[in-house]
Amino acid sequence: MTRASIENLAMLSVALSGLAWGLFWIPLRALDEAGIAGVWAVVLFYVLPTLLLVPILFLRRRQIMAGGPTLHFAGMLAGVALVGYAGALVFTEVVRALLFYYLTPIWSTLLARIVLGEAITRRRWGTIALGLFGLLLILKVDAGFSGGLNAGDWMGLIGGLVWAMAAVCMKSDETGSGADFTLSYFVWGSVAALLLAALPIEGSQAAPDWETIGDVLPWIVPVVLVLVIPPAFAIMWGQPC
């Protein structure tokens, strides 16, 4: 496969993963309705796939341990970023969460220029301009920024910035494996989700009981196997290309 074909496939993988992540709010809201409310829906959304991936984690334990600081730092950043995004979907309006998080191209373009020395093309400048214009609309600049930012808005905004850092970190590691980045991401994402659950965030709920968790497993496991794990593998492979 030629380099151009690999890059086209990588771009397609990233685009499809972004589309899948745009649907995350549906199972998160369904978990909320089923009694797993607030940040605990985010915790389940990360801990469950990590548990399902334990066999692969075991098989690749040596590669993961030998991945060096870049692998684990990128996985930690990616985990924090996507937990922030999921938290934004829980704690603010879906549209606001999506718009704040998907300002990521602005941050990734600027960081790639600063860290990797990549040129900023006219198309990317246009993307940055559109992103900033969208940000101003969200903040209701025409009304004197009266919209304000809530906790979910900040999660989305910070999550997008941290994801840009993770993307640059992954791209700088030419020897990194997409599979190992993904496994590291789920482990660190689980840690980040549990830490988020420990924060005194307004609107957080008590931890669900085991019976409630058992009731949602028959449908959340297939969702995780289709909507969560494959897109993560796809974007962790495609992002560095």
Rank of each mutant, 00 (worst) to 15 (best):
A4R: 11
M1C: 08
T2R: 02
G68F: 06
Y185N: 08
R96W: 14
I120Q: 00
E174V: 13
G22P: 08
D173G: 03
L28E: 12
P218Q: 05
A15D: 01
V80M: 15
K140F: 06
A207N: 03
W163Y: 05
A15Q: 07
Q239F: 08
A10F: 02
E7A: 11
L53H: 01
V42N: 13
G79C: 11
F58S: 07
M76T: 14
W210K: 10
F181N: 01
V223G: 02
G75K: 11
G147N: 15
T182K: 02
M236N: 11
A119D: 02
E211G: 06
V228W: 07
V216L: 03
L89T: 12
F145D: 11
V54K: 06
R60D: 00
S184T: 00
E7I: 08
P69F: 00
L137D: 08
L137Q: 14
A66T: 06
L149T: 09
M165P: 04
Y46C: 01
G67K: 03
G238I: 00
F233Q: 09
E7M: 10
A198R: 04
A206G: 03
A74D: 08
S146V: 12
W163E: 10
V14H: 07
F58P: 12
A143C: 11
W154F: 10
S5R: 09
A74S: 12
E211M: 10
V43N: 12
L9K: 06
E7G: 05
C169M: 06
T50R: 10
L116Q: 05
V223M: 13
W219D: 12
G18Q: 14
L23C: 07
A143Q: 15
G22N: 13
L130Q: 10
M165D: 06
D209E: 13
L98R: 07
L16Q: 01
C169L: 06
F45S: 14
T50K: 12
A66F: 09
P200R: 03
A179R: 06
N150E: 15
G178P: 12
Y185P: 03
L132V: 14
C241K: 04
I56A: 12
A97W: 06
A4D: 02
A97D: 10
F181T: 03
G147Y: 15
G152C: 07
S146T: 14
R61P: 08
G79K: 12
W21V: 14
L103T: 14
P69D: 06
I120K: 00
V223Q: 08
A66R: 11
A198W: 02
G178M: 03
I213Y: 12
V187A: 00
L44E: 09
G189D: 09
W21F: 10
D153M: 04
I56P: 02
W21M: 15
L89H: 13
L98I: 14
A88S: 15
L31A: 05
E174H: 11
G152S: 13
P218K: 07
V47Q: 01
D209H: 00
M236C: 06
G214N: 05
A97R: 08
G178T: 03
A206F: 01
C169K: 07
A88Q: 05
S146M: 05
P69H: 03
I201A: 01
G126W: 10
A206L: 13
R3H: 07
V141A: 15
F133W: 13
V83S: 10
V83N: 13
W154N: 04
A232G: 09
R124M: 05
A86C: 14
E33R: 05
L225D: 06
P230E: 11
L82G: 01
R113W: 00
L135F: 09
V168D: 09
L161M: 15
G84A: 04
